[in-house]
Design a protein around this nucleic acid. Structure first.
Length: 743
DNA sequence: GGGTGCCGCTTTTTT
DNA sequence: AGCGGCACCC
């Protein structure tokens, strides 16, 4: 490594491994970076260092997974070096830029619309109806998901069809080409297209590939463990002639398999790039020893994993807490009280706390508890706002202004507000459009010539087409003006107001908020028109709306928390079926991913980590008895385990749950009692288990033995599980743990 | 032929 | 919370 001018401040506060990573010059490099090991710092310093070494900024491409991470990286590099010309963006934003730039070469209009998963489902539904497949048999979401996975694996419709074996795959194989045709005709790309087409173009067009490889000589990829096949292909094809691919990641934090990421990309890096430099960042600067030991112990249970340890740099801190509550209301109340108390004592501020959950649906109880205790909070879930019906409607108008071929948006708002265009008319219109290979907008403009469409409906359709034609020029101007005009011309506000007096205030407020969001966007991006605004909101993720400076407790999913850190982390609802999630229990590989998810959550904590579960949980309208997460059993003995409440005693005071004023209550710390046992038939033969025993099964959770029958290899055991009903197993084959003798 | 109101289903995680 | 499906009314 050479040292250039002004390197000292870039390298001074780095440890040995970090410095080696930053100053790695040419050739592929894999940086295995555990949580809290300073990987963002390594990437940003490296970009600055490369520029200091004389690498031109426009030869640098740094890719992250979220817009927020990209923005942060950009501002951090900015503080270190002039990087004008370097691209720091997400894979998807890079894909958009690539597609717009090479649209002509790819046979695409540069004014394409980007479809989100909701739009994808609608288009999939249309495509299913194009085929002879029974549309009730397969949901558009399921088929759309399968198409998405195919694209993530770079499978074209032809290749997918060649490999389709089972009934479902054969149906998807029918729909996939129809979907693609429909998308192309609508001038639309889905999220996966933003990776799929660039990946294919780079793979198949040698001159384009060489041109891009030459342009981006230094490619850096963050969170490499989460790349899918398409992303892998993009990175690989940009790193042939200039094989300076620098990837940073942690196999233990791979949590996006469901959207196609392939952990083998990082595990096989050395095989794919012979001679790659491999560096390990294992010093953890984030968390206390207690937290790291707990996280280490948990992740060590994964079989498909290279062993590695996190080296703490910090003090011991306080032990990791595991608390069992009676139900989710008390669990949430416990969190809210602790936050309140710490803030009241002046020891913490609200923004020091985060509540990390497996599912968005679990936030309810916490919202209520925080409100009750006057604890300010924010939920990181940006989708909710732009997903509101009224906003989606307005957005559909904007899309039609920039791209009149967008059939999905057409269908969404052609009768919104109501214009007297019903299902029958639309069916006729679609038939007509299909027979002439025309877009719905074009067909609407000539609706008066379509047989079987009533004159009244035809008039409405023509007026609608004319309206959009008149609005279209506004797409070049600032988006908030376009929205204002849309609302005015469609009288959308008025139509909302006349519906339901109770909710319409909310809806109108949402529309106003959309106008504000558009105005803010215009101010920040004065040169962008409506198309830029649409692109921005479609590609914005939940985490992008998260404000770290806000004085409030943060609630978010474990997935969204990746890359973040908080002084105090709560991880509630650690129950079998939630984490690990029910749908992962059938496959050991999926359970390992759930364990990684738990690991990611735990390693967000800097000083305190509070894990909890509830004995009872209301979910989808039913109350179920829960089983503590298997992951809690994998933590070391040093964690502090506490039982609160204990329903069976009936001794606690629940008054605080109903009133506004919290009442202090006793915290009897006592062990959980065994479940009441029922008298069951005894068996003659000696056996490790007998009726009444309380047993733990790896997947089904806690249950009570009802009966043991037979003998030898055919001895059977019948168990009633708390959540999964009655099951029968062969005693010799089933993995059970006796928890209590019971009866 | 279109509009309206009610029911039940949906969601695990996301760019 | 939204939305498709359905029944019922205009």
């Amino acid at each position: 490594m050479q040292s250039g001018p002004g390197d000292a401040p870039l390298l001074a506060d780095l440890n040995d491994a970090q410095r080696q990573a930053v100053t790695h010059l040419d050739g592929p490099a894999l940086i295995l970076a555990g949580p809290g090991s300073g990987k963002t710092r390594v990437i940003t310093r490296r970009i600055a260092w490369l520029i200091n070494q004389g690498v031109k900024p426009w030869h640098i491409l740094a890719i992250t997974f979220t817009n927020k991470a990209a923005g942060e990286m950009r501002s951090r590099v900015e503080a270190l070096a002039t990087h004008k010309g370097a691209i720091i963006s997400t894979f998807h934003s890079f894909g958009v830029r690539f597609m717009r730039q090479h649209a002509a070469r790819l046979g695409l209009e540069p004014s394409f619309t980007i479809y989100d998963q909701t739009d994808r489902a609608r288009m999939t539904k249309i495509a299913i109806e194009d085929t002879k497949i029974d549309s009730n048999r397969f949901s558009p979401e399921a088929v759309g998901g399968a198409i998405s996975r195919a694209k993530n694996h770079l499978l074209s419709p032809e290749r997918y069809a060649a490999e389709a074996r089972d009934f479902f795959a054969r149906a998807v194989a029918e729909v996939y080409p129809r979907y693609e045709k429909r998308m192309r005709d609508a001038g639309a790309l889905d999220f996966d297209d933003l990776l799929y087409w660039p990946a294919l173009a780079l793979r198949n067009d040698a001159s384009l590939r060489a041109e891009c490889d030459e342009r981006w000589r230094y490619v850096l990829v963050d969170e490499y463990q989460d790349t899918n096949t398409a992303q892998y292909a993009i990175a690989r094809n940009l790193s042939q002639d200039h094989p300076n691919l620098f990837v940073v990641g942690d196999p233990d934090q791979s949590i996006y398999k469901f959207r196609g990421s392939d952990i083998r990309n990082i595990l096989d890096f050395e095989r794919d790039y012979p001679g790659a430099r491999v560096l390990h960042l294992s010093d953890n600067y984030r968390s206390t020893r207690h937290i790291l030991r707990a996280a280490d112990a948990l992740i060590a249970n994964n079989q498909q994993r290279k062993p590695k340890k996190l080296t703490p740099r910090d003090r011991d801190g306080s032990p990791v807490e595991v608390v069992t509550h009676d139900d989710q209301a008390r669990e949430a109340e416990g969190v809210a009280r602790l936050v309140r108390q710490e803030v009241d004592r002046g020891r913490r501020s609200f923004r020091d706390f985060a509540v990390l959950l497996r599912m968005n649906a679990l936030t309810r109880a916490f919202e209520q508890a925080f409100i009750r205790n006057k604890v300010p909070f924010q939920i990181v879930k940006g989708l909710a706002f732009f997903d509101r019906k009224e906003n989606k409607d307005v957005i559909a108008y904007l899309r039609l202004m920039t791209n009149p071929r967008d059939d999905v948006s057409f269908l969404r708002v052609v009768n919104e507000p109501p214009r007297g265009v019903g299902a029958t008319t639309l069916e006729r219109l679609q038939e007509y459009a299909a027979s002439r290979e025309a877009t719905l907008m074009a067909a609407a403009a000539q609706a008066e010539f379509i047989a079987d469409i009533t004159p009244k409906a035809a008039k409405s359709l023509v007026a609608f087409a004319r309206l959009l034609g008149e609005l279209a020029p506004l797409a070049e101007g600032p988006p908030h003006e376009a929205i204002t005009k849309v609302l005015e011309r469609t009288r959308y506000r008025e139509s909302v107001k006349s519906k339901d007096a109770l909710t319409d205030d909310d809806r109108v407020a949402n529309i106003e908020e959309l106008v504000t969001a558009a105005r803010q966007f215009s101010e920040a991006n004065p040169d962008s028109g409506v198309a830029g605004f649409l692109e921005n909101i479609t590609l914005a993720g939940d985490i992008d709306s998260y404000d770290t400076r806000e004085e409030s407790v943060t609630m978010m999913t474990l997935h969204a928390a990746k890359g973040l850190e908080f002084p105090v982390v709560f991880m509630p609802a650690l129950e079998q079926g939630l984490l690990p999630h029910e749908r992962s229990l059938n496959s050991p590989g999926d359970v390992e991913e759930e364990r990684r998810l738990c690991f990611v959550g735990m390693t967000r904590a800097m000083e305190e980590l509070h894990l909890s579960c509830a004995r009872m949980r209301e979910f989808r309208g039913r109350t179920i008895y829960t089983v503590p997460s298997m992951f809690l059993g994998e933590l070391p003995g040093e964690v502090r385990r506490t039982e609160r409440g204990v329903s069976e005693t009936g001794g606690h005071d629940a008054a605080w749950l109903d009133g506004d004023t919290p009442v202090e209550r006793r915290e009897p710390a006592r062990p959980a009692p065994g479940r009441p046992a029922s008298p069951a038939a005894a068996t003659a033969a000696p056996c490790a288990y007998e009726a009444g025993n309380i047993v733990q099964h790896d997947s089904y959770g806690l249950g009570q033995v009802l009966e043991v029958s037979g003998h030898g290899a055919t001895r059977k055991i019948r168990i009633r599980f708390i959540t999964q009903g009655i099951r029968t197993f062969l005693v010799d084959k089933v993995a059970l743990r006796k928890v209590a003798r019971g009866g």
